[in-house]
Design a protein around this nucleic acid. Structure first.
Lengths: 236, 236, 236, 236
DNA sequence: GATGAATGAGTATTCATTCAT
DNA sequence: GATGAATGAATACTCATTCAT
């Protein structure tokens, strides 16, 4: 959980400080608030991933916390709101990385590799947390067709395809379908990767990019174009 | 049982008559039953697609019909059961078609074209129904990572890839990722197609197959391999 | 089930007749009605005894029958009504026997012996029915403090005690408590007897009468009055 | 937990203070909780006694309080649980008294007098409560053949009869029937007593014990054994 | 009269949210 | 700001009863 480690670090520190300081000086109030908010968010993320949005209850969330049920509503106005906050947060962490890739676009292959890598690493961060000792994987979300993260990927790719690739593609190229395909691959390969024992985002990204660019033809062993792309054979 | 035999006699007679008269009028009761069952199933399909399995309530379902709440339970024992019935039914309609495609497999391209066509046409059937007058499209399901239909497609493709394609592919080809990719494309392109005004499953299938076989390279206008697959350029 | 055998006999007969007679002559309607009513009553008795009045459902009752649920309401207006009918019926079968005992009253002992015997035999009849082959015992009713049968016994005894025994007893004898005690003994010894393997109403009646008349003192082995009624000893 | 330590500190302090200040004011919250729990228990006891366990609904119970339906489940997890709580509580209050009687057993008469008194007083406590102003008597429970209290009495008596009385009785004395009889008397006389205007457990106990020890013979006015046991007379 | 599907009020229970402490 | 008990609308499901066939 690389992303959140940096966020949690200060928190752990302040926690230690508190123990050594007999009386919490001013400004602690603020920190406590931030800490509680973070704790609730983390708990909610875990619970939503574990049971899904509908099945998760606010009680589940606050029970994963040292706080009382009423406290939840000091930080979020509803179960819906915290879910939105989590989703937004995820998208907000992912999107700048994707944007960066698009802006420093050099060629399609490295662009795709960049965003696939970013997305797969994001997934690993997002759906894994340190449980009781060993790393346990949370069920990826089963409730939304497109998580905000997926939507971010979708939109970024759509932009990239439209902006950068337009000229190179046949004029009748179906940008929408291309985007749908690329995100479909990202989604499913990403899920598959999560279930593998040593999660290898690099390998997954390389696979995805190869397939997107060259199709199954690129995966054929010796004799490219033999059977895997028979229509081409017919054409010639 | 004996007691009622004499009572049932006249009824049995008319029943027999019916059989010999080659006319199965199927009493009004039967018709009503069939109609109600169908109405509940349709309503459930709509509600599940609209709100997702978890969020959907049995009340939502029966409220979408003109039946009373108790009537639901004359036909299905629980929310779970009707969901299973819908899912099973969908998979049972789709799978034989996919199997047939795999069995009469000639080359990868026509196979993929066959299953994509089947899947896209299935989607059109499944997520459209004749509402009050004009054809209305239901929101495609938002709840399950993989609907039974998708699972059927996934399994069929995995089989096909393993059985038919194994020899042609590099020995280290990642069958799982290939399957994930193909189904990811099918899923997302299918969804996209559903939102288009004239739904064209043929076109969608052609697009998907082209991408799967030849990647974006196959979509590049004049100069194949120029920029869309720049790494190959680098290699040379 | 001696009592109901005589009731069922004609029914079995007519059933056989029907089979041999191709066309049911007139009057059958009446018989069918009586038969259905009896079948429903028997089923209800079994179901009430099995599950208790509250837990028993009308569906349980008609399911134990060849009839349809609606038919139930051609014979009884409600679940409550059939329960009342059963209770009344039980009391009506028991009460005349008890009355007879009271009328031919000679001495208390033979009177008590008569009613105890009658009650215990009634219980055996009531809570046993011929199931699938071997005699199975139904759970005695657990829902009513006093079944109608118990009430009948209570009232009869109260009458007998008041009418016949008044003179013999101390003028301040508490007739109500006496009756309560006698019926309490009858109730509990009767229940106990039902659970014994060979049910012996004669023995149970003898025990009950002995206790009622002479108390535990009458059960003491050699030396009556020794310790079982120690206070008397102390007095002397 | 660590997080909230600093937050809880002040609270812990005041908590400690409380302990040392020897004043357990027990905050208003606690009091309300205790009051609500008691109210629910009382309501449940009343409702169960009124309608019986099966017919009683949780709604009935909470409707008898001024609480909301959900509140019930803050205190008891189910209708079953509260029923068990009531029953257990009743038995737990009665049983030690009965045990004590058995342990300090001196002679049968005083033993029986002790347990009858205890049981009858228990009944008075249990089935009377101060309602809106004047003491109202609840209908004694109509649902269970044997309430836990009755079971407690039964078991205690069975033990006492077996342990203490065995030697004195004829070897073939039917301990089970004796126990059944004694509890039958206790039960019915107890019920009868509850309906009397000035409830006199002493009198009821004296009656019950007399009957148990000496039978109706003991109640006969002048000439003991004359008519109340006439068959013996006839025999001689 | 028999049938059995339709009805809808009723049941136990859950849970997001509020609010007195 | 934190607490956690109270709230009551909502849920899935049952079942006595009705009524068109």
């Amino acid at each position: 959980m690389n992303i959140s480690v940096s966020d949690e670090q200060p928190w752990v520190m302040s926690q230690l400080e508190e123990r050594f300081l007999a009386k919490p000086p001013e400004g602690r109030r603020e920190q406590t608030k931030a800490r509680n908010r973070a704790a609730i968010l983390a708990a909610a993320k875990a619970v939503f991933a574990e049971k899904g949005y509908e099945a998760a209850t606010v009680r589940d969330i606050i029970r994963s916390t040292d706080l009382a049920s009423g406290t939840f509503y000091n930080y979020f106005n509803s179960k819906e709101e915290i879910a939105a906050a989590i989703a937004t947060d995820a998208a907000m962490r992912l999107r700048p990385i994707l944007q960066e890739q698009r802006e420093k676009y050099r060629d399609l292959e490295s662009y795709l590799d960049g965003i696939m890598n970013a997305y797969f690493r994001f997934l690993i961060d997002e759906y894994a947390f340190k449980g009781t000792g060993r790393r346990r994987f949370m069920r990826p979300p089963t409730t939304q067709v497109a998580t905000p993260a997926q939507r971010a990927v979708f939109e970024e790719i759509q932009l990239a395809v439209t902006q950068k690739l337009g000229a190179e593609l046949a004029s009748d190229a179906d940008v929408e379908y291309i985007t749908a395909s690329v995100t479909g691959i990202a989604r499913n390969v990403g899920l598959q990767m999560l279930y593998r024992k040593p999660q290898d985002p690099d390998h997954a990204a390389r696979f995805a990019v190869g397939l997107i660019l060259r199709g199954l033809a690129g995966l054929v062993a010796r004799h490219p174009g033999s059977n895997a792309s028979s229509r081409q054979d017919d054409d010639s």
